[in-house]
């Protein structure tokens, strides 16, 4: 990654134009031709500096349901419970975290009813309470990573 790559990352984490020739337009501010900009982005995707290029969609807008759940899992049962939780297709992420509530996972499904069924099944299988924390408000995200 050189300075030009850094400039691309710093400038283009949003604001990519919605026009017929967006790379040409985006390249102007970076003093790059459209083919050079395309090649740079292609190379950064190939070497995993970028995970993706394109629109980032708001997960709420397709009508699905998502929630964040937390459980307090005894250490001796941790691996077994993790495997059981992970076995559900609806579980998208699962993290061990430094807290008494030590297992945090995201559940996504087409409807809230499907989520309820998954959480109930996990509670039954684990014999533990699942703390269901669906978001009640979401705040605008200003995140930009500096390269």
């Amino acid at each position: 990654m050189d300075q030009i790559d850094r400039d691309i990352i710093n400038a283009l984490q949003g604001g990519f134009p919605i026009t017929e020739h967006p790379f040409a337009q985006a390249g102007q501010g970076l003093e790059l031709g459209e083919d050079d900009l395309i090649a740079r982005i292609e190379a950064m995707l190939a070497d995993n500096t970028l995970t993706r290029f394109g629109p980032l969609y708001n997960a709420d807008t397709m009508g699905g349901a998502v929630t964040l759940c937390a459980m307090s899992v005894p250490e001796k049962d941790f691996e077994q419970v993790a495997n059981m939780v992970n076995s559900f297709d609806e579980v998208a992420h699962n993290y061990e975290r430094s807290h008494e509530l030590n297992m945090w996972f995201v559940v996504g499904a087409g409807t809230r009813q499907e989520i309820d069924a998954v959480l109930h099944a996990i509670e039954q299988a684990a014999g533990l309470e699942v703390h269901d924390m669906p978001k009640t408000s979401e705040f605008f995200i200003g995140l930009r990573f500096e390269a």
Partner: peptide
């Protein structure tokens, strides 16, 4: 093409699209 452009602009303005651009691998940075 103009239909795609118009619809994507509307989705960006309406918040369906959060943003468009490069999504860095933050571990790599």
């Amino acid at each position: 093409t103009s239909a795609v452009l118009e619809r994507m602009k509307a989705m960006l303005e309406g918040g369906v699209i959060r943003r468009i651009g490069v999504i860095p691998n933050h571990y790599a940075l």
